[in-house]
Amino acid sequence: MTTKRSAAGLAGLARSAPWLFSFVGALVIFAVTLAANNWSGAGQIITAALSFGAFYAIVGIGQMFVITTGPGNIDLSVPATIALAGAIAMTTMGGSDAMILPGLAAAIAAGFLIGSFNYLLIWLLRIPPIIATLSSSFIVQSLAIVYGRGLRIAPPPFLAEIATGRVLGVPILAIVTILLAVVMAVVLHRSVYGRSVTAIGQNINAADLAGVRVGTMRFATYALSACFAAFCGVMLAAFSGGASLNMGEEYLLASIAVVVIGGTSVAGGFSNVSGIWGAALFLYLLITMLNTLGVGAGLRQIFTGVIIVAVITLAGGRKKGRG
């Protein structure tokens, strides 16, 4: 009886505050890590989690808007975009502080073009977004390889300072990303664009009949996701002392994982931004915990995978629409 009631309570909580679970999970893992570490080094762990979590959060927010527009909508071109944008930014900047803004603009513009190309394929060829972003990511990947060949240009000092520096112990990049998350949460829940994206995800035909400009909104969503991936690429290159071709690799899985663990429905039409931060911290702390416990690379991957599957199994498949 009590278990039934608490299960119902949990389900209710999952509906009213889906972001809560990722933060609770992050806290639990954080506590275990600290215990294994003899209750020391808490500050260091939090700082590292905030820095690395920020990268997950940036790509996660873009991916979330795409996933919100409904089943089958996933941007697979994130890793290729990260690699190309990072290379473009580092080349344009050429290590000079004065060129930071032009370099950033060039990278974001490249992201915008990639996103536009993605939607052009979806719209013109009427193909599922997964296939469209997959095909374009092949091309972008080749461009990144050719463009970034043997290139290892150090980031401008000021940009590197932003990517790695701290204010009062808090990473600057984390502050920027938290602000970004707040802005995007307002966009998602309060702006015409955000409401339209949610409406499209719940029922694209109903949204169309209700006067939502479906095409424009979907175009904006794919462009937005690619721009966020491009921004992540620039900051990642600045963080790690230069762009590399495979620096985007892990972000395909990570971007989807943080969205889902954060409580956004994969069926679309139901999402939140704050859960992404919780999930980003969760993912990074999980890796830290397994490292602290002395778990090897193989077991670490197995645990990560099992936990992703367990989270989605517990969260359950939400039926499409309001149900």
């Binding site: 994969v266 690379a297 077991l299 991957q301 099992v306 599957v309 989605i312 359950g316 039926k319």
Partner: peptide, 21 residues
């Protein structure tokens, strides 16, 4: 009634981990 994309994504970590072991 789970999304296959997420489940198989998670499983890809599991398979890779086993292979590394």
């Amino acid at each position: 009634n789970l999304p296959s994309i997420v489940v198989t994504l998670g499983m890809s970590f599991v398979w890779s981990g086993c292979a590394i072991l």
